[in-house]
Design a binder for these strands. Structure first.
Length: 668
DNA sequence: CTTGATACCGTTTTT
DNA sequence: CGGTATCAAG
């Protein structure tokens, strides 16, 4: 049995010799050269985890393993790209030769190749979170028009969350409701109905949400024995990065594909920060139980941070209950420097002033902006910072807010391509159809249904039957002119989708109806046209349209920002979650006050330990200098709250950090 | 049915 | 201060 091969890679290759011994420390070397037993690599923050994985791949290649027989699973696209780029540097083997990516992106590929027995056509499209939520909202309104109007009932978002959590933790809806939302127990039957109809709608429209990519991947492996066997044999080595952040589905996928125990799992239980997405750090704790003869490798020498920062981080780790998890200490390897500094400030504005004041000092000392990163627990905590940076003309790059692929004009354009690719994706159709005058969701649906009926009759693509008599009859007069131009563009896209490259297809969409349309709609249409052009450029990296569409949906800001626009010398602002796996010479951690970090909301459901892990992740990003700012007052709606420094800091031995107060009055 | 205006709600983290 | 749910007019 043979499935798609990603490239024709020559079988017998000579790799440039890699000196493993002198490029790795003993701990790393042991893991890199591990035998074929299942392996669990416990690598603390900054200990060279990526380096170890990279060299492991190189080692396998040198031992004669074909790149196509290695599966590399990571948590973010960025991590996958970075690792394979480093492998390429090291060995010269191009990254396309490997199967590597996030669980979701590999799942997307699996579904396309093997989804048909589950009712998923190869041309299915992926919905992002907001698409998925609005589809669910439609379903709820349809099944029970009154449900969402009652303010005591849970909102769509909550229900979506609940359904998603149940799927990701392999629990029944009932169990999740009773476990996490017992006060909604009376709605259990409603939830079940909503969930079931939601699934049916997805199938009918040939769309998948994020969870489907994992759930169906697992189902494929469980139900199609020959497919499972193929991958079990094909992947002689499975490397899993950030194993502590896998959920039960992902763990099962790995167990199934890795049925021959050809698994190397890498992670750090102290850095598990995705439990709200179903991640279960017990996966990493139980790995040795599930896989007999697991070799455990510990990598504890830290190359990233100064001893002062590490002592601080170790102090945070020591706050965990003894015996909980694997790790105890990170051993420093660098020379001494200044201890972390806690700066107490009055409020958010003073916080911004304090940080900028210090940044100015750092620039005078010869640092450049790109060495400095500002971290925070939640996006909104960076608001004052953004305003003040803008005011003072300090260039910064923020990986949040409206992200490149989430801008309205990008989504509008992508929707056109999506619809051309999967004409049953009615949400994609609605997205652009509703832009036309006098067309709202009701009219759009009528046009769509009419066109769909025509298409079923004639066997033509829905894009062509949009101008059939029955469909045209539903188009309001005011929209007729736009309609002609729109449908002409769509037809062009459909045609091109057959045999042209993705970038040609996207380009067609970008110069068609939509380019005329945005001129009349947006004052800054030049900027938007530029964005559309960079989207065309981005599409140029893909040879397959579905791969492109999938990646666009699966990509977060981090990757899009850095991939669409070149890197510049700018200050970085990012959440701690997004900073995971990265390191920066200078780190500022905002809002290090109790109630902000740990975030009060997050502690409602036993979240304190995870907040502490997140705090640990935050402080271990810093290489040379770590600053934390703790506002004393916070505006909470109408009233003001008084806050103390984070309990994670207060619990520490005071000799582990220094404290300062910011005096200078803000300049405004 | 669409569109525009007004009231009000709420503000974690992401594939 | 923001965005969105809801309502009334065209």
């Amino acid at each position: 049995m043979e499935f798609e091969h990603r490239s024709n890679f020559p079988q017998d290759l000579e790799y440039p010799p890699v000196d493993f011994r002198s490029n790795l420390n003993d701990e790393q070397f042991a893991a890199v050269t591990a035998g074929d037993q299942p392996a669990l690599v416990l690598a603390g923050a900054g200990t060279g985890k990526t380096r170890t994985l990279t060299y492991r791949v190189a080692y396998l290649l040198e031992r004669g393993v074909h790149p196509g027989n290695i599966l590399l699973l990571t948590f973010t696209n960025k991590a996958a790209r970075e690792m394979l780029a480093r492998v390429e540097d090291l060995t010269g083997v191009p990254r396309r030769a490997f199967w590597g990516g996030t669980f979701h992106s590999i799942g997307q590929r699996m579904l396309r190749m093997h989804g048909e027995p589950l009712g998923i056509e190869p041309n299915y499209t992926i919905m992002d979170q907001s698409d998925a939520e609005s589809l669910l909202a439609d379903v709820i309104k349809e099944l029970d028009p009154q449900f969402l109007k009652d303010k005591n009932n849970p909102k769509t978002k909550v229900i979506a969350n609940l359904i998603s959590l149940a799927r990701n933790t392999c629990q029944s809806l009932d169990d999740v409701v009773m476990g996490f939302y017992p006060y909604f127990r009376e709605h259990i039957n409603d939830f079940a109905r909503f969930s079931q109809t939601y699934s049916e709608r997805k199938k009918r429209q040939q769309v998948a949400d994020f969870d489907d990519l994992l759930v169906f991947w697992l189902e494929i492996l469980q139900t199609q024995e020959e497919v499972a066997r193929y991958y079990q044999e094909r992947f002689q080595h499975i490397l899993v990065d950030e194993y502590q952040d896998t959920n039960l589905i992902q763990a099962q996928i790995i167990d199934l594909i890795g049925a021959r125990d050809q698994i190397m799992a890498v992670g750090d239980d102290a850095q598990s920060i995705y439990s709200w997405r179903g991640a279960n750090y017990e996966n990493i704790l139980h790995f040795p139980d599930k896989h007999r003869n697991t070799n455990i490798f510990r990598i504890e020498t830290n190359y990233r941070s100064t001893p002062e920062i590490l002592r601080f981080a170790n102090g945070v780790i020591r706050q965990f209950h003894p015996g909980q998890g694997f790790f105890k200490t990170l051993r420093p390897s660098r020379g001494h420097s200044q201890p972390p500094l806690l700066i107490r400030v009055m409020n958010g504005r003073e916080e911004a002033a304090a940080v900028i004041s210090r940044i100015t000092g750092l620039l005078d000392e010869g640092r450049s902006l790109k060495d400095i990163t500002v971290l925070y627990r939640a996006h909104y905590q960076a608001l004052d910072m953004q305003m003040e940076l803008t005011r003072q003309n300090i260039p910064f790059q923020i990986t949040s807010g409206v992200q490149f692929f989430e801008q309205a004009h990008i989504k509008d354009l992508v929707a056109q391509v999506k619809f051309a690719y999967n004409p049953r994706d009615s949400r994609a159709f609605h997205r652009f159809a509703c832009l036309l005058p006098k067309i709202g969701s009701v009219t759009a649906e009528r046009i769509f249904q009419a066109a769909l009926a025509e298409a079923d009759k004639s066997g033509e693509h829905v894009a062509r039957t949009l101008i059939s008599r029955p469909a045209l009859a539903k188009v309001p007069k005011a929209a007729r002119k736009h309609w002609e131009s729109l449908t002409a563009t769509l037809e062009g896209i459909v045609e091109a989708a057959g045999d042209r490259s993705p970038s040609e297809v996207v380009s067609l969409a970008a110069v068609g109806w939509y380019s005329d349309f945005i001129q009349t709609l947006y004052p800054n249409y030049r900027q938007r046209m530029d964005d559309l052009q960079s989207l065309v450029g981005f599409a140029g990296r893909f040879s397959d349209l579905q791969e492109l569409l999938g990646q666009i949906v699966l990509m977060n800001s981090e990757t899009s920002q850095t991939s669409v626009y070149p890197e510049e010398d700018k200050l970085r602002l990012t959440t701690v979650h997004q900073a995971k796996g990265l390191e920066f010479p200078v780190v500022f951690l905002l809002a290090a006050s109790d109630g902000l970090f740990p975030l009060a909301r997050a502690m409602e459901n036993d979240g304190l330990d995870e907040e502490r892990r997140l705090f640990y992740v935050a402080v271990t990003r810093a290489m040379d200098e770590l600053y934390m700012t703790s506002p004393h007052l916070i505006q909470f709606g109408m009233n003001t709250k008084i806050l103390q420094p984070s309990r994670f800091i207060q619990a520490l031995d005071p000799t582990l950090y220094e404290m300062a107060r910011f005096h200078r009055k803000p300049s405004w």
